[in-house]
Design a binder for these strands. Sequence first.
DNA 1: TTGCATCCTGACCGTATGGTCAGCTTTCAG
DNA 2: CTGAAAGCTGACCATACGGTCAGGATGCAA
Lengths: 212, 212
Amino acid sequence: MTESTRPMRRQDIRRENERAILLAAEKVFAEAGFGGATMQLIADLAGLPKANLHYYFATKEELYRSVVQNIFEIWLQAANCFDAARGPIDGISAYIDAKMEISRRHPDGSKVWASEVMHGAPVLQDYMESTLREWTDGRVAIIRRWIDEGKMDPVDPRHLLYMLWATTQHYADFGHQIETLNGGKPLSSRQWQEAKENIKRVILTGIGALPA
Amino acid sequence: MTESTRPMRRQDIRRENERAILLAAEKVFAEAGFGGATMQLIADLAGLPKANLHYYFATKEELYRSVVQNIFEIWLQAANCFDAARGPIDGISAYIDAKMEISRRHPDGSKVWASEVMHGAPVLQDYMESTLREWTDGRVAIIRRWIDEGKMDPVDPRHLLYMLWATTQHYADFGHQIETLNGGKPLSSRQWQEAKENIKRVILTGIGALPA
DNA sequence: TTGCATCCTGACCGTATGGTCAGCTTTCAG
DNA sequence: CTGAAAGCTGACCATACGGTCAGGATGCAA
């Protein structure tokens, strides 16, 4: 066995290990919550000795913070869909698609985010009071404009946003419940598609953007 | 100070202490999750020595199980609204009202329930596979009937139910986020009312039960 | 009043966990 | 080639936690 693998340059090592740790941490935090997660479990899942975790992330809190911030980035990126849109049909459709895709591809991240908010956002409070608030205010303005332009009914923009967040996020956070009610099987591609279409149809019709 | 208070009969003592413990436990489990909650914290909040908790609830798991089952009862009771209804407008309106009231009155319970499901329902798996599944199947049948009778559009009943659960539950589970975006203040009675009306209007219109 | 079951609790225990550290190996710039 | 910086890790530590228990206090039926 000559070492055909790994020259492994310093930079690569660091990047690769941090990635593995963050991935493992995301899963463990999602499954057990912050309090229930242990560094040992994360280390085992990442395939590293526990002490090595502390080399990259000094404390459990710091590791958790990194995981949560990663999710928040992804979450915010889905926002772009909204901006480019010409009206509610485009914008909200794209946003629902994007957020459902996050629920499907990053269920663990979604759960960590949900858990963080449920526990009073100890880590993200700053972000919520700055970035999230700005983002929300911006989208509220866009929706108001759409209403003024007669492109949709006068629905309270904030409650509409909450509805979008709730319905899409639900498929990740309550995925286990949905799976159980689906006969113990994860939703198929087809079922994910149906979910998206149902949500889009009900909401877009509900706000008067689509003909009833 | 003569003891005008407390003759405190045995039965009363037991009932009162169990109530206090369950209330405290609900709050602590909601705020910290199962793993993050400590018996000491619960005991302090209930105003009892820790050892006394173990007199009433042998283990942390048993206490947690009691809390979760309590919530599940409340959750299921909101179901009755559905049955008595003559059509989607009555039924879904009443269900949304009931579930929003739960989110408002029992935010801690809602969070514990959400947390339990998010972590794979280790305690409630049995219930989910029996009671919840039956309940869901029953409601799906009712919605199908409404669709057949032309009282609403042919929306997938399951996804509609998920939407109802998600939107209403969101106001409890993500209450902190909503509060932050509301300028740091809890929703007023008026705002709760608006939330309910928005949700009802969008969904009922969205499924074609109300005129657009 | 008595005896007993229930209720209560301070002190204690074993374990698991987050975190530390001394000293090793590996990479790489000069 | 060499020295220093980066990466790695087994062994260890202090603490906090869930849970136990012996024995005291209290309510109550007879």
